[in-house]
């Protein structure tokens, strides 16, 4: 089918990706920093204190974005895993592998901030709250992915096994969330608190959105950087990688490398010829 030769494949060549990321990342860092500064300023100085929790609720401006990022990154990990398994695009595995540590970090931060938030509001750092518990399980899924990838001597094979695990995990995530929620409701009745109810002030919403943007952009930048390093280390002997390592990757070298990759990813056969 034509699926194997559509134009976006151009960016699946590590060399093209490297050059693109090289141009993008320098813009992402300051953008993330600006969003974070604005968001934190709004969150700490503009948003009014909560009438029940006082200032303690402000950790939500970090807790909520990290929790969302964690879930989103796991989903993205599984999508890249599926792309890698179906089309054997090496770049997809590189991206998935680059996402995992950031995803684990986000999930961990969300647990950490959840604990810090719990201390003043629930009087304890840890309760087996439905959302905390399912986030903890999400962290285990990230760790499993990373461990399986790392345990295999053959990066290609390890990547395929880990991608399959990510897909099985992603199919399971809704079931896990649902069952944990159910488990919690059966044992505890209603949730301990819902601070993100309808009573949020506009400035709170603005601060939250800014912080979400900051985390998105930060995650994008750090994942792209990690993927660049991974791309280089996978093809250390190629011309483009050596040129890129010293910062002199020419357009010409890039295109040659991309053509090479295209050849690699285009198996001969009925599909290729059709």
């Amino acid at each position: 089918m034509k699926g194997r030769s559509i134009p976006w494949l151009k960016f699946t060549a590590p060399a093209s990706f490297y050059a693109l990321a090289q141009r993008l990342v320098p813009w992402l860092w300051p953008a993330a920093a600006l969003c974070a500064i604005a968001g934190l300023y709004m969150g700490f100085f503009v948003a009014p204190p909560d009438h029940q929790q006082g200032d303690a609720y402000r950790i939500l401006f970090i807790h909520v974005p990290t929790a969302w990022m964690g879930m989103l990154l796991y989903l993205l990990l599984a999508v890249y895993g599926a792309i890698f398994l179906v089309w054997r695009i090496k770049m997809a595995d590189i991206m998935a592998r680059a996402i995992a540590p950031t995803g684990a970090l986000m999930t961990f931060l969300s647990l950490w901030t959840g604990a810090l938030w719990g201390a003043p509001t629930w009087g304890t750092f840890w309760v087996w709250d439905a959302r905390l518990t399912s986030t903890l399980i999400l962290l285990f899924l990230f760790l499993g992915y990373m461990a399986l990838h790392a345990a295999s001597d053959d990066r290609e094979k390890g990547g395929r096994a880990a991608s399959l695990l990510a897909i099985v995990g992603a199919v399971n995530v809704p079931i896990i969330y649902f069952s944990v929620e159910w488990w919690y409701n059966l044992h505890q009745g209603v949730s301990v608190m819902r601070s993100d109810g309808p009573s949020m002030a506009d400035s709170m919403v603005a601060a939250l959105l800014l912080m979400i943007a900051a985390f998105w952009i930060y995650a994008g930048a750090v994942v792209l950087r990690r993927a660049q390093v991974e791309a280089l280390s996978r093809e250390p002997r190629t011309e483009w990688a050596q040129a890129a390592a010293v910062g002199r990757l020419t357009r010409d070298q890039r295109q040659r490398a991309a053509a090479d990759t295209a050849l690699d990813q285009q198996p001969l056969g009925p599909e290729g010829e059709a």
């Binding site: 399980i137 760790l143 995990g169 079931i175 896990i176 649902f178």
Partner: peptide
């Protein structure tokens, strides 16, 4: 164990 136990959770709960 690390890979599979998290996936056991729903079955265990139910």
């Amino acid at each position: 164990a690390l890979l599979i136990l998290p996936l056991y959770v729903p079955v265990l709960i139910l």
